[in-house]
Simulated assay, not measured.
Amino acid sequence: METFLKVSIFHFVIFFISVFGLTWFYEIFQSELGREIFAGFHFFTIMFLYVLTGYILAKKNNKELYVSYLLIIMISVAFWLFCLIKSPNTLNYKSNVGGVWLFYRFYISGIEVPLVFINKYNILMFQSVKRQMFTLLGLSFLPLVFQVIGTKIKRH
């Protein structure tokens, strides 16, 4: 349980750095190219922080750590399923039905925010609603992947 708490705290800290620490820098860049370059830097910074947290948390016996990672993913998937069940046809948070997706997007915004600022490559912009929903689910797996990479780096 202690490891799960540490993993959760690291997720919150990285979310805070991404959303409240780095997002305001987008206002500095007047050109779309400048914002896109910074968005790439923003995304890779966040992924590096996830690798670093995986590295910091790694121990000789990582069973408890992997269980903690699994719990975080289970929470993400359960939250996503709840949103899908409540609003299977729209992501429009302004509608009464789709409003639940706003909370999920806030939950994954530490990862989604830099990807939204890359206008030409915005992974959500040109997709159907169903594909967008599954893309949002996929984004919730990125922290796990990069934390596991950090854990593996320390073990080898």
Rank of each mutant, 00 (worst) to 15 (best):
K120W: 08
K6R: 08
G21A: 03
L84Y: 10
K152H: 13
L102P: 06
T23S: 15
Y107R: 07
V145T: 07
Y107T: 03
L81E: 11
F4P: 03
M74S: 14
F41I: 08
F44Q: 00
F25I: 11
S140K: 02
F25S: 10
F44C: 01
N92I: 13
I149H: 11
G98M: 05
V97W: 09
K60G: 15
L57W: 01
R155I: 14
I149M: 13
E32K: 10
S109Q: 09
F79Q: 09
R35P: 00
T151V: 04
V148I: 13
L91Q: 05
Q30G: 13
I153F: 13
G54S: 08
S109H: 09
V100T: 05
I9Q: 05
G21Y: 02
G98K: 02
S8F: 05
T3I: 12
I28L: 10
F117C: 12
L22S: 06
F82Y: 13
F146R: 00
K86F: 13
F146W: 07
L49W: 04
S128H: 11
G99V: 05
F79L: 09
V77P: 07
W24D: 14
K86R: 14
F10C: 07
V51E: 13
A39M: 04
L144V: 12
P88G: 05
Y55N: 03
N62R: 08
F48I: 05
F44W: 08
V7H: 02
I9C: 04
R155M: 07
K63N: 15
W80Q: 01
K60M: 10
L102H: 10
I9V: 12
Y107W: 15
Q132K: 13
F29G: 04
V13Q: 00
L71Q: 07
F117K: 11
I85Y: 14
L33A: 14
Y104V: 03
K6Q: 12
Y107V: 10
Q147W: 02
V148R: 09
L139N: 03
T23D: 13
I108P: 01
I28R: 10
I56N: 07
F10V: 00
L49A: 06
V67F: 10
L137P: 01
H11D: 06
F38E: 05
G110W: 01
S87G: 05
Y121S: 04
G21E: 00
V145I: 12
L84M: 08
H156A: 15
A39I: 00
Y26S: 05
Y26I: 04
G138M: 03
N89G: 03
L57R: 03
R155W: 06
I56H: 07
V77C: 06
